[in-house]
Design a protein around this nucleic acid. Structure first.
Lengths: 347, 347
DNA sequence: CTGGTCACGGACAGCGTTGTCAGCTCGAGG
DNA sequence: CCTCGAGCTGACAACGCTGTCCGTGACCAG
């Protein structure tokens, strides 16, 4: 890391007090209310007056204080809060982007934070956002306790849960068809002759992980290949534990010939563990990811759309803000199997 | 998309007025000031009084209004603004994550927005954040005009530019070593025998694209293979135009045997265009990306760390908030070439 | 010239909170 | 008994802005 000092003038000297409407009014020789009118494009100001005011605003670099405005007006702060698991995860950054997009169209700013799967952190973020009086809240739940939100909801802050349902409050929720997805994955693999299909999922206390496991089980039963405890591993999270698990699955008495991965990170860990291995099991991953089609073999996935999820949730939120007070809805977005090769390997 | 109605009680009835400190004070039988003291953990409140107040807070679901607090206190709003190009891009979502992380440690919330490379949008976002009186601003510049920030900087809002420098204000800036990176890429390819090395970059009005082009040129000269206009293409942005460009580069009189890609998106477009092609040029991409090591051949890249960029910029910002008023700094983060195979193909 | 309307500008209060400062009670010390 | 300080509590103003409401002067009809 190198550090260079620039030459030339420095833009900021030191701490000039910020101009207020009062300063603008004084400079323009009008009352503060007139400045307010100009700033808010209210009618009833003579053009020449308005011009003087605008000149003063420009000269002083005035920027109205939204804290004061929001306090006074009491209604909308023009912000919505987004609590997710990790912005760094491409799936959630896709969600974030979609949320931002729609919020922008509706003149709102997005405040977001990552819970890192920590319920305490989720709560902290959500309540912090409430203190800032966000107009609405989008939450990817980390925990199962959401009664802390009841006072906020009662006070009129709409809340939409996405990707996972809330634990103990009834509220709008947008999910993807987790069960249907893994059912389809197993069906697909079975139709290619696999009878020993393993499932590698996240910790089972995570809603999506559990649902996907249920789908896997149902898929196995439907395909007539039965559900076998020893083919399931929930929880392996990092690369090495995934590798170990894979080895085990391939060295048991009747080894797995195919694997269903419970989410995008697990899929990637599996791919890395498999790299350079001769004996590759067939693979179907939950969540699509960039470049899946360029790997060899290309990776078959259960795809669902991060931006569709974000959009559906945000649309729901804005419907509430627009006054929709019908009973809470639960929206389930479809998933689709994208066959690319890795799941079409014959047993 | 299916919609289900849940059973059970609905958490939020309708619009109860939000409790204020006054309500809490009345219920607890104390003055509003005492409530304030309890909420702010100020000393000098009798434990039993505090308990009464806390009970009232709980009963009413009181949550203090930060707009009012910020207005009254005038100092920090506990927020920092982040303007980037697109949160959906994994590179920037990595930056976002790092910023969030450090902000969290310092008790700040992050408000972010995507400019989509539109200078007007960048300005709008930055000024909106200023209206919200963010404590500091992190900006990935979309344009070259930043004098609009001068009043804000003068008023004491520190600004740090990242990834690209500002156009016309002198301020803290964190960059990566773009020139060094492409010099190294070209050197690497030349050392493997390539003499016809092409460069595919972003539009040349983007700072990083231009710098990388400069590095490419310098690398060519240093490697003694000369700079050839016809081997450079700036601007192709989508998959099809990249494919067309590649075809052209491979069908000219002395075809390119190697390509340097100007950023991660271009690298991916190239990979896709090349998929299934027999005659693959050697490739070095700027920006690392997930799974680059699992492609065949694995992709050699100029790697730099999104989180290092975010961290450096945020650290700089907080140093300013802590009172550092030394002259603006320009920090250049190193890049490193990660050889993986695609750049080691012999000509 | 008068009375009424209209366009414009301004005084004032108050949003929910916190900083200042003053008051009150209680017990120890004189 | 009074004094004094420590410990606790509260009254009040003010942060920057906007909604309400009133005042002023211009203009026009009668």
């Amino acid at each position: 890391m190198t550090t260079l000092s620039p030459s030339g003038p420095v833009a900021g000297q030191r701490k000039v007090r910020r101009a207020t409407m009062n300063d603008v009014a004084r400079l323009a020789g009008v009352s503060i209310k007139t400045v307010s009118r100009v700033v808010n494009d209210e009618p009833g100001v003579h053009p020449s007056t308005a011009e003087r005011v605008l000149a003063a605003i420009d000269q002083l670099g005035f920027r109205r204080n939204l804290s004061a405005r929001n306090l006074r007006r009491g209604s909308s702060t023009g912000t919505i809060g987004l609590v997710l698991e990790d912005v760094g995860n491409p799936f959630y950054s896709g969600v974030t982007r979609a949320v931002e997009e729609i919020a922008r169209l509706r003149g709102r700013q997005v405040i977001s934070g990552s819970s890192d799967e920590d319920p305490g952190r989720e709560r902290e973020l959500a309540l912090e956002f409430c203190s800032r009086r966000v107009d609405g809240l989008l939450i990817v739940p980390a925990g199962l306790q959401h009664s802390y939100l009841v006072p906020e909801m009662r006070a009129g802050t709409p809340v939409v849960f996405l990707d996972r349902p809330a634990g103990d409050v009834v509220a709008d929720t947008v999910l993807v068809d987790n069960i249907g997805g893994t059912v389809e994955a197993v069906t697909h693999l079975a139709s290619h002759g696999h009878r020993r299909i393993a499932f590698l999922g996240d910790a089972p206390d995570i809603f999506t992980a559990n649902e996907r496991l249920r789908g896997y089980r149902e898929g196995c039963v439907r395909a007539g290949i039965g559900y076998h405890e020893e083919l399931v591993a929930m929880g392996p999270h990092d690369e090495s534990s995934v590798a170990t698990t894979l080895q085990r699955l391939q060295s048991i008495r009747e080894p797995a010939t195919a694997v269903v991965a419970g989410n995008n990170r697990i899929t990637v860990h599996i791919l890395r563990a498999l790299a350079g291995t001769a004996e590759r099991p067939a693979l179907v991953g939950f969540d699509d990811f960039e470049l899946a089609d360029l790997l060899s073999p290309p990776v078959t996935v259960i795809a669902h759309d991060a931006s569709a999820l974000g959009k559906a949730a945000t649309d729901l939120l804005f419907a509430r803000l627009d006054g929709d007070n019908s009973p809470p809805r639960r929206v389930v977005l479809p998933v689709r199997l994208v066959p690319r090769g890795s799941g079409e390997v014959h047993a």
